[in-house]
C-alpha cells in the first residue's frame, strides 16, 4: 500500500495511505506534484502542512478514515451534480466526533478542512458554528466567541444606524 508522510506545523509526522490522503483536495495535488518532480516513482511523498498543528491534523485524518468510503464531494461547487448536502446527512459518528470539542477547536478544524479541501468535514463543522452565529443577538455572539467590542469612535453607532436603515427598508 502506497503511503505518504504528512507533517504538522509542530513537527509530528503521520503516515497515511495515499488513497486516504487523496480524499483531501490539497493533499491530492501535493502528492501529484511530488510524483511529477520525483525521479523515483517508488519514493514516499512527504508533505509539510505549516498551518495545521498535530492535534487538529489528527482529527482531520481521523474523520477522513471514518468517511473513506463516502463518495467524494467536489470541492469546486460548480462541478456538483445536483446532489445536495442534505442527502449526505450528518451521521451519529459525526455528532459524537464533534460533541466533545470546544468552539476554538471547531474553528481551527474549519480552517484546516478549508485549507486541506475536505468538503464533507467543512460542511459539518460549519453547520456547528452556524448554530452559534445565526439567529442570535450581537451580545449572544460576543459571549459565545468571548469577544469584546473593539470599535473606535462612533463607528459602532454608525454601523447600527446603517443596519437599521437596511432592516427598515
Amino acid at each position: 500500500m502506497a503511503l505518504v508522510r504528512v507533517i504538522s506545523s509542530d513537527g509530528a509526522a503521520f503516515l497515511v495511505s495515499q488513497r486516504l490522503a487523496k480524499r483531501s483536495g490539497k493533499l491530492k495535488t501535493e502528492i501529484e506534484t511530488f510524483r511529477k518532480s520525483s525521479d523515483n516513482s517508488e519514493a514516499q511523498p512527504e508533505i509539510r502542512i505549516v498551518t495545521i498543528r498535530a492535534e487538529i491534523l489528527r482529527l482531520v485524518l481521523q474523520w477522513l478514515q471514518q468517511h473513506q468510503n463516502d463518495p467524494v464531494l467536489p470541492a469546486n461547487q460548480n462541478e456538483q451534480d445536483g446532489r445536495g448536502d442534505a442527502e449526505m446527512g450528518q451521521s451519529q459518528w459525526d455528532r459524537d466526533f464533534l460533541a466533545p470539542m470546544d468552539l476554538g477547536i471547531v474553528m481551527e478544524l474549519i480552517l484546516a478542512a478549508n485549507h486541506l479541501e475536505v468538503k464533507g468535514l467543512l460542511d459539518i463543522t460549519c453547520k456547528l458554528v452556524e448554530s452559534k452565529i445565526t439567529g442570535r443577538t450581537v451580545d449572544e455572539i460576543r459571549t459565545a466567541f468571548k469577544l469584546k467590542s473593539d470599535f473606535k469612535g462612533n463607528e459602532e453607532e454608525q454601523t447600527r444606524l446603517e443596519n437599521r436603515w437596511c432592516v427598515e427598508n
Binding site: 474549519i110 478549508n114 467543512l122 450581537v138 460576543r142 466567541f145 467590542s149 470599535f151 437596511c166 432592516v167
Partner: peptide, 23 residues
C-alpha cells in the same frame, strides 16, 4: 469568510455580524 461561502445567508444575520466587532 468560509462561513459566508458555505452556509445559507440571511440578511439579518449578516447585519448582526457587522455589529459584533471591527474585524
Amino acid at each position: 469568510p468560509i462561513l459566508l461561502n458555505t452556509i445559507d445567508l440571511n440578511l439579518h444575520d449578516v447585519l448582526t455580524w457587522r455589529e459584533v466587532s471591527h474585524g
